[in-house]
Simulated scan of single mutants.
Amino acid sequence: MNQPVHGLTARPSIGRIDLTWQARSYTPLVDHFAVYASPDRTFQTETLIGKTIYGTFRHDNLGPARQTWYYRIVTVDAAGERSRPSAVLRASSVESVAIGGRPVAVIGTFDRKSLELALAPGGYNEFLTRFPSGVDYTQGVSTPAADWPYLHPGPADKWAGSKAHTFSFRFRLDTAPAADLALAVWLIDTHATTPGKLVVACNGNAVTEAALEKGATKGSTQGDATVPGSPLRPSIVEVPLPRGVLVAGENVLTLAKPEGSWHAYDAVGVFAP
């Protein structure tokens, strides 16, 4: 007889919830695990959100706002026999700071589109002509449509000179912050095989290095991830900006791409959480 799984746990992040569990026995032979989710504990609107042969499952595409879901797993054996559902697990995704925070300095619109940015949606071949020395954007002076390109190339991109490019974002603070701020980098897509990493610094101080998720390699020519059936694979990078690296007056935030291929921006912003 099929045994229900146990140890169902969740690891939430922005726009997704990762589930893990353990199977009590693989006798009879397990064909798959069926993953059910519901927005209510009673499971009156239960939905089969996926099947897997592994003890893990990612519930993604939840969007930047916080969402709460209830989960249970059913074991299905090779004969189609189903176990009792697992115990119900309640989990919530993490809300983006771009939703709940106060904007301090922002480039673009957080809308899953790159269309308001320079060269979008497909003018990447003009990058070296327009931005031969990288990007230097000043809040209140520069404009997204002219001064912040939608694609950030890396050394793997021959069309951008096969070299690293740094994007600088200058913004002013009236006073040094009393608490940490947060950086939100929303992407509509990344390269499918070599997305590389984003190296963040502020005023010459290292902040973090964030490995980028693999995308669909479509964001170089398509700029709207909200279109039904869009192949784009948006992702979000959000990191703290420690108050110790910020100063009253001008601050210079740098986003460097020392390895890999391009990523496609949706918007970039500094927020007070």
Score class of each variant (00 low, 15 high):
residue 108 G to F: 06
residue 54 Y to E: 15
residue 81 E to L: 15
residue 160 A to V: 11
residue 3 Q to P: 05
residue 63 G to Q: 08
residue 97 V to E: 07
residue 23 A to S: 13
residue 44 Q to F: 09
residue 208 T to S: 09
residue 266 D to M: 07
residue 85 P to A: 07
residue 71 Y to C: 08
residue 24 R to Y: 12
residue 66 R to M: 12
residue 222 Q to P: 00
residue 62 L to R: 09
residue 117 L to M: 07
residue 145 A to T: 04
residue 181 L to R: 06
residue 60 D to C: 05
residue 177 P to L: 02
residue 73 I to W: 10
residue 140 G to E: 01
residue 137 Y to D: 04
residue 198 L to Y: 05
residue 252 V to C: 02
residue 269 G to Q: 02
residue 109 T to V: 11
residue 1 M to L: 11
residue 253 L to R: 02
residue 239 V to G: 00
residue 118 A to W: 04
residue 263 H to T: 00
residue 171 F to T: 03
residue 98 A to I: 12
residue 143 T to H: 04
residue 44 Q to N: 15
residue 21 W to T: 05
residue 13 S to G: 07
residue 162 S to A: 14
residue 33 F to E: 00
residue 243 R to V: 01
residue 58 R to M: 08
residue 232 L to R: 05
residue 18 D to Q: 10
residue 116 E to C: 11
residue 84 R to F: 15
residue 105 A to G: 06
residue 36 Y to L: 08
residue 100 G to S: 08
residue 54 Y to A: 13
residue 15 G to N: 04
residue 149 P to I: 08
residue 8 L to A: 13
residue 81 E to T: 14
residue 90 R to M: 10
residue 27 T to K: 12
residue 28 P to S: 04
residue 130 R to V: 11
residue 157 D to V: 06
residue 133 S to D: 15
residue 204 G to S: 04
residue 243 R to G: 02
residue 70 Y to D: 07
residue 56 T to V: 14
residue 67 Q to N: 13
residue 57 F to L: 09
residue 221 T to R: 10
residue 96 S to T: 03
residue 190 T to W: 02
residue 78 A to N: 09
residue 233 R to L: 04
residue 136 D to L: 10
residue 117 L to I: 12
residue 129 T to V: 06
residue 154 G to W: 07
residue 49 I to G: 03
residue 44 Q to C: 01
residue 170 R to P: 09
residue 121 P to D: 13
residue 25 S to Y: 09
residue 160 A to I: 11
residue 74 V to I: 15
residue 229 G to L: 01
residue 70 Y to A: 09
residue 161 G to Q: 12
residue 85 P to N: 03
residue 174 D to I: 05
residue 253 L to I: 04
residue 180 D to L: 06
residue 170 R to W: 14
residue 266 D to E: 08
residue 206 A to Q: 00
residue 212 L to D: 00
residue 71 Y to G: 08
residue 47 T to Q: 15
residue 93 S to V: 09
residue 207 V to W: 01
residue 178 A to K: 11
residue 210 A to T: 03
residue 74 V to W: 12
residue 41 R to P: 09
residue 252 V to T: 12
residue 66 R to E: 14
residue 54 Y to H: 14
residue 255 L to F: 15
residue 198 L to I: 02
residue 50 G to A: 09
residue 175 T to A: 14
residue 47 T to D: 15
residue 110 F to D: 03
residue 250 E to I: 08
residue 178 A to M: 07
residue 51 K to H: 15
residue 18 D to E: 13
residue 142 S to V: 06
residue 27 T to V: 12
residue 188 I to G: 01
residue 6 H to A: 08
residue 85 P to M: 05
residue 76 V to W: 09
residue 86 S to H: 08
residue 194 T to R: 13
residue 186 W to M: 10
residue 260 G to R: 02
residue 209 E to G: 08
residue 67 Q to T: 15
residue 124 Y to S: 00
